[in-house]
Design a protein around this nucleic acid. Structure first.
Lengths: 227, 227
DNA sequence: GCCAAATTCGAACGGCCGTAAGACTTCCCC
DNA sequence: GGGGAAGTCTTACGGCCGTTCGAATTTGGC
């Protein structure tokens, strides 16, 4: 990506802290934020350590000093954002469970799964770029990330269990497949796919209204589960 | 990917011809088949020209001699497989249109869109690896591929037009969004995602039965369009 | 204000990459 | 069977990559 420009090459006001507060200007945080942004926009393989440190305005050796390696940096960003996103989802699922005496309907379960990432997608949301990062990391990440995605399904199981309970009439495999389909819909929300959709619809579709998008996705997925 | 092994490192019986017949052992075809396979399994960036030529059992310079560059090789594979897949889809859509006096129902349109790629997904289908290649190339490809995907929507428009006609009651934007969702479901059919699903379902799901998978996807998507 | 630890810095190393140059071989047409 | 084109081979070039090293600098506790 070297020949390209990036708007602002130096991150002046990162909105994310690495460990606590008052470390906005700390090198480690500058690297974290710049790397997340560049990985999300251009992909892991297309961004070099030099690109990251240049964008962050720090020394080349910073990545290896603070994170150990480029791979470890990617993994740390991935881990933190995943935890953050899944915590929001789990909280929503928990609330829905409380609201419905331990057995929420399909729509509420799907809402708990889809609402947090779609909220992040809003144009002015501070996690907008993080969501793009997560989507990319899922398919372009390192072997370690891929292994974690395949191995650690504890978070996802909360949702499949809830769905199994909400639809005891369906064969369990059917539940898993429909969950798989729903996740496919979600992970298709990449900038590039939106651009393609906008060309196809000649501007009739706008992903800026995430509330509307969430409503459409929920309606589509819920109908799919009721098939 | 150099440290890894790949089962068979030398392609002995390629099932694809570059231009006509009787060129199974021709260098260009050996490169084409080996590259498609390696790109599909490991991704474009993780496969070097040396990996390809070694797997094909040909000289290092073959890629640049026959295709011009590594990028051009990727693009040629992408273009050929895309044309082939879209031809099958267009044929099915055309047949459905004939069968229904120019106005096929939603399910038949979706079947024309989904059946060819899902057929390719069958364990013994000769295009199984090609489909994985196409899915990967869509998100990991070069700038040129990404530009083509965004610019050339003529093929996709055949399907959106058919859907608009089948559901004139729906706002056009709604049609485009639901088509976008359906494509998301389709593009989620990667080996890695199947593995994850199998772990989650503890083996209850099997992607080997593509007929059943097609039926599930069609049912889910059709229900989504009927929401 | 001192000292040790933590951090930042400039510079370079070894390695793999895509590509090209040039010699050599094979093929095919006349 | 001779000659030119097409294809194959060896070799290496220039470049960017992730990482590391040792020196310089800053930081924080006393």
């Amino acid at each position: 990506m070297s020949p390209k420009s990036d708007g602002a090459t130096v991150i002046t006001a990162p909105e994310t802290d690495v460990e606590g507060v008052d470390n906005e200007a700390v090198t480690k945080n500058l690297v974290f934020v710049a790397a997340e942004r560049l990985f999300a926009l251009h992909g892991f393989q297309n961004v070099s350590v030099r690109d990251i440190t240049a964008a962050a305005g720090v020394n080349l050796a910073s990545v290896n000093y603070h994170f150990g390696s480029k791979d470890a940096l990617l993994y740390e960003i991935f881990r933190r954002r995943t935890v953050e996103l899944n915590r929001e989802r789990a909280k929503k699922l928990h609330e829905a469970t409380d609201r419905h005496a331990g057995n929420p309907p399909v729509r509420e379960i799907l809402a708990a799964l889809l609402t947090p990432p779609l909220k992040w997608l809003a144009p002015d949301h501070e996690r907008r770029i993080s969501l793009q990062f997560l989507i990319r990391a899922r398919s372009e990440g390192t072997d370690e990330i891929r292994k974690v995605l395949q191995t650690d399904v504890t978070h996802l199981r909360r949702f499949s269990d809830a769905l199994l309970k909400a639809r005891p009439d369906l064969p369990s495999e059917e539940i898993y497949w429909r969950l798989h389909f729903t996740l496919g819909m979600l992970h298709n929300n990449r900038f590039a796919e939106f651009d393609r959709l906008n060309v196809l619809s000649e501007g009739a579709t706008s992903e800026a209204d995430v509330e509307a998008l969430l409503g459409r996705m929920l309606a589509f997925a819920e109908a799919g589960f009721s098939a």
